[in-house]
Simulated scan of single mutants.
Amino acid sequence: MRHVHRPYLIASLGAAVALGLTGCGSGLPPGASGDTPPSAVAPTGPGSPAPGYSGELIPFTFPNGPLSLQYPLEWHAGLAEGGGMPQGSSTATLSDPQSTNEVTVYLGKTADAVSHPVSRTVFESEPVPGLSGQAAPAANYSFYVDRMDGKPTYRMHLTAGAPAAGNSAALDGIIRVGEDVLVAEAHFTKPFASDDAAKAWLAGTEGQAFKALFLSMAYGGR
């Protein structure tokens, strides 16, 4: 059982994430089967491809809503539905087997969060083009570090608009898309040793793949 350091708990996602990690209800989603060839689009950014990392992407489509994204060919994909989640909700888990870092993406009806005061340093934040048609504030891909009592928590996730630097409150990362809510966040197996280490990871192959996944998300209205 891997331990994930998280700055807060999203209560309605707990059961879904647990299912995704144990494999219950998991499987390749529509569009990720051998019937659909991967696109030859590589994540951009500095750094040479890691061994066994082709840069090819596979489409992933949620069965319960018009949400899609793309993930690297070498990654593992799982989907969890039901099992304590609100009806009509599902959670996808996209993981890199080379590091066991992963991204969880929840699409459903409800999501809760707990906030607390932090001091934030923002590394980068960009609007997600495929989510630009949704309610303001626009969904952004964001990577930053929050410090609480001097302890850093590095976060990469979708945010409602660009996160504010300096003294602020922890972000819940809940995005409104049509009649649903969307929560997408990276989970790191090991904490970064420093801000410089986090920025070096972002500039490398895996960091750019994570960024490309977030920026690939698109939602079509119902």
Rank of each mutant, 00 (worst) to 15 (best):
L94Q: 09
L79E: 09
G78N: 05
Q98N: 13
L94M: 13
Q98P: 06
M85F: 03
A92P: 03
G82N: 05
Y71I: 12
Q87S: 14
T91H: 05
Q98E: 12
S89F: 00
W75F: 07
G88F: 02
L67M: 02
N101P: 01
A92M: 13
P66D: 13
A80I: 01
L69K: 09
A92K: 04
G78K: 07
H76E: 15
L94S: 14
E102G: 15
N101D: 11
T91V: 10
L67V: 06
Q98L: 05
G83Y: 00
T100D: 04
G83T: 03
L94N: 10
E81P: 08
A80T: 00
L69S: 14
L79Y: 07
P66N: 15
S90W: 12
H76K: 15
A92T: 04
M85W: 01
A92C: 11
D96P: 12
G83W: 00
G82L: 04
T100Q: 09
Q98W: 01
T91I: 08
G82W: 08
L94W: 06
P72M: 11
N101K: 08
T93G: 12
G84D: 03
G78D: 03
H76R: 11
P72Y: 09
E74R: 11
T100C: 05
E81D: 07
D96C: 04
T100K: 06
L79P: 11
L79D: 08
P86N: 08
Y71M: 09
A77P: 09
T91M: 07
T100P: 01
T93A: 10
E81L: 05
E74M: 11
G84H: 00
Y71G: 11
Q98C: 10
Q87E: 15
Q87T: 14
A77N: 07
T91Q: 09
L79K: 10
L73P: 01
G84K: 00
S90F: 11
P72G: 06
S90L: 13
G84R: 00
E102W: 14
S89P: 01
Q98H: 11
A92W: 12
Q70H: 11
T100R: 06
G83D: 04
A77E: 04
E81V: 00
E102Y: 15
S90M: 12
S99R: 09
G88P: 03
L67A: 05
G78V: 11
E102F: 15
S90Y: 13
G78S: 10
L67R: 01
G82T: 06
T91L: 06
H76W: 14
T93M: 12
G78L: 07
L73E: 14
G78C: 07
Q70S: 13
P72H: 10
L79M: 02
W75K: 04
L69Y: 10
M85G: 02
E102T: 15
P86L: 15
T100A: 12
L67H: 02
Q98K: 15
S68Q: 12
G83V: 01
T93I: 10
T93C: 13
D96M: 00
S89M: 02
T91N: 06
Q70I: 06
A92F: 13
L69G: 13
L79W: 09
G83K: 02
A77G: 08
T91W: 04
Y71K: 10
W75T: 03
N101R: 12
A92H: 05
L67I: 02
L67C: 02
P97N: 07
P97W: 05
W75S: 05
L67K: 02
M85E: 02
G84W: 00
G82M: 04
S89Q: 03
N101T: 11
P72N: 13
P72R: 14
W75G: 03
